[in-house]
Nucleic acid binder design. Structure first.
Lengths: 148, 148
DNA sequence: TAGAAATGAATAGCATGCTATGTATATGAT
DNA sequence: ATCATATACATAGCATGCTATTCATTTCTA
């Protein structure tokens, strides 16, 4: 008996994600940001000054991952941190001017990568694809919640 | 202007892949293998004794990634390496007895994870989903080939 | 057949992601 | 008010994946 990668949703999802990341990385490297910083940037572009804990809740990564990402973002001059006025355990994370200015370019890069990946899809297929991905994600989130 | 993660194929693909990996990891940890070892194992279960270069061509990872994975697999008692009879640069990679014996259990684990993720899909949706993932993968592979 | 080019592997260095721990501060319950 | 618990954050340690570099051996070509 064999195992066919082309028929394994998990195998394909892994490929898909790596190819998306590769393509996006290429499009945003001129902006001085990386794929892993994207989730935090999206959240901060929406609302600047979030705490790390709020960023964790706004994204889908673990606290330790966010801590490491913020450290690299600070090193790279994308954010700076200030003590939280009401909670001395927390810090607020603020975007630098540079990070604020690349917002639209970053959105464009992400949209272009999505468009490139789905270039051969009909509009209906795009909708269906997004719908099915959301459905599988919801299903697995529910299951992992239970098992933990 | 905002960027909606729920409408970004790349964002969803990243989520999807991580959730698949999480679920699979849980199912195979009792077998003493990890998700990253799966591609190499699939190739070696099909044909034992491949070289590292052949494993790279049979999977979708870079040579350096495969080298690191094989090193961990050797450390974990999943493979052993023997000098290639016809090419002294190369080595053949052979599965240990333990690695051979878990084959069916590993297939089952992967199939069960795929089934769990797509539990709410109709058979037609499953086919459509796999088809669309393959299509996006093919498209991006073609593009990345050009840009490199 | 000698030198150039290609191929097989290993390694360094990095990003992203995880779990598990530790530490400090807040909060809630007695 | 005190003590237990919850929360915020940092860090260690690891897996997976990448690019770039290096080294050795083959293979091709002039």
């Amino acid at each position: 008996m064999t195992f066919l990668k082309d028929h394994s949703a998990g195998y394909l999802a892994n490929q898909l994600a790596r190819l998306f990341a590769e393509g996006l990385q290429e499009r945003i490297q001129a902006l001085g940001i990386t794929t892993g910083q994207f989730p935090a940037l999206l959240a901060l572009w929406e609302k600047d000054g979030l705490t790390q804990a709020e960023l964790v809740r706004a994204t889908d990564v673990e606290q330790a991952t966010m801590a490491a990402t913020l450290k690299r973002m600070e090193r790279d001059g994308l954010v700076c941190r200030k003590p939280h006025p009401d909670d001395s355990r927390a810090q607020q994370v603020f975007l630098t001017e540079r990070a604020k200015q690349i917002r639209q370019l970053a959105y464009t890069a992400a949209n272009e990568q999505n468009g490139a990946a789905l270039a051969d899809f009909s509009p209906g297929e795009v909708e269906q694809f997004l719908h099915l991905m959301r459905k599988a994600i919801t299903t697995m989130r529910e299951q992992n919640k239970r098992s933990s």
